[in-house]
Design a protein around this nucleic acid. Structure first.
Lengths: 197, 197
DNA sequence: CACTCATATGCAAACAGTTGCATAGTAATA
DNA sequence: TATTACTATGCAACTGTTTGCATATGAGTG
């Protein structure tokens, strides 16, 4: 389980409320870690039981009270330990691929329609990422250096979404005109562009 | 939940035992859908309760008895209905990204070591996929046409792994020499395949 | 006035998936 | 002889995540 650690990382960055973290999960970190607010509140509670976080209640007259969480020394220590332990590669369970894998020729039009929806969604997302990247490169060098790690994660998102989109477009084309694949993506012996060995 | 449907798709393809399905999940379909054997046996049981699959017991003298499952009419109907309903894009929870996002400069050497492990693993996987692709293109045109949908899913795997590898190498280089990112991955207004940068 | 949206928190039930263990036979390896 | 690996199935406990609901207030919309 590392939702706990994802939360610790975010609180290390900056203290915040559960609601606040949920917002941050929707943007930034949310491109590679998803969590609903219910789950976040639950984990915050557990983290508090573990003494890895503490909170101060901020009374608000106009809105419900806030619990502003921050990481503790013990939490920082736990985070450092976690960083040391290797993680497993994420498992991907993509229902769309199951459909494509199992679809019969007669299902093609339906599949094409669904692929189109995904294409639209991913294009929008890629445009969003483009905006973020633009604003990163609008910063001065000091700021860019400061945020290079978070930027690397955006870069991951861009590569993922772009790769997904390219595949969706390829799959769509193939299904729509009922052809067969031609060139391999991989040559026989090279596997990725290796600038220098 | 679509492990159920992933199983139905595989049984539609060809009847098989739980053990058998677990093997198939490890290869082919396993590149985009992961499942442990325990989970598979559990879902097979549920599918049987739903009357979406049936099985015949094959007594074996030398090995434990087999339950060879096959899809029923009701199962095929359920599968068709599922194909009609749009799926949600998969959620990705990648702990490695959390590490990169939250890592401090002092964590860089450790992160580089971990990135290297992932790089090794993904390179091996990409090589495997390359083999599979080669053997696909070694087939005659009729066979290629027949297996074009499964091949599309391999293509997805290749794109994913290749994108992941490129990012890992980029991240590794950046962390190792402590530099900062230079060119954006995305130009201001174009979003997908650009000739060459 | 009703409805939706945004802020802010949280419980309970259901569903999904992992980990550990158990059983049982054959075959190969140390 | 003990251990490991492969075939073959499955339960139980636990962890992780989603869905549905509940509460509370203020602001904006129809």
């Amino acid at each position: 389980m590392s939702l706990k650690h994802a939360i610790l990382v975010m609180l290390e960055n900056e203290p915040g409320t559960g609601y606040d973290l949920a917002q941050r999960f929707k943007s930034g970190i949310g491109h590679f870690w998803n969590a609903k607010h219910q789950q976040i509140y639950l984990e915050l509670k557990k983290l508090h039981d573990d003494k890895w976080v503490e909170f101060e209640v901020e009374a608000q007259s106009e809105k419900p009270d806030k619990k502003v969480y921050h990481i503790t020394r013990a939490g920082q220590k736990a985070l450092k330990e976690w960083l040391r332990k290797p993680v497993k590669p994420p498992r991907v369970n993509d229902a769309l691929l199951v459909k494509v894998f199992g679809g019969q020729p007669s299902d093609a039009p339906m599949l094409v329609a669904e692929l189109d929806e995904h294409i639209t969604r991913y294009r929008a997302r890629l445009a969003e990422y483009g905006q973020m990247e633009q604003s990163y490169f609008g910063q001065d060098e000091v700021t860019r250096r400061r945020y290079r790690l978070p930027y690397l994660t955006l870069r991951r998102g861009i590569r993922y979404v772009r790769g997904t989109l390219e595949w969706l477009e390829e799959a769509r084309a193939l299904l729509a005109d009922n052809g067969i694949p031609s060139q391999p993506l991989l040559a026989a012996r090279s596997h990725s562009k290796r600038g220098k060995g």
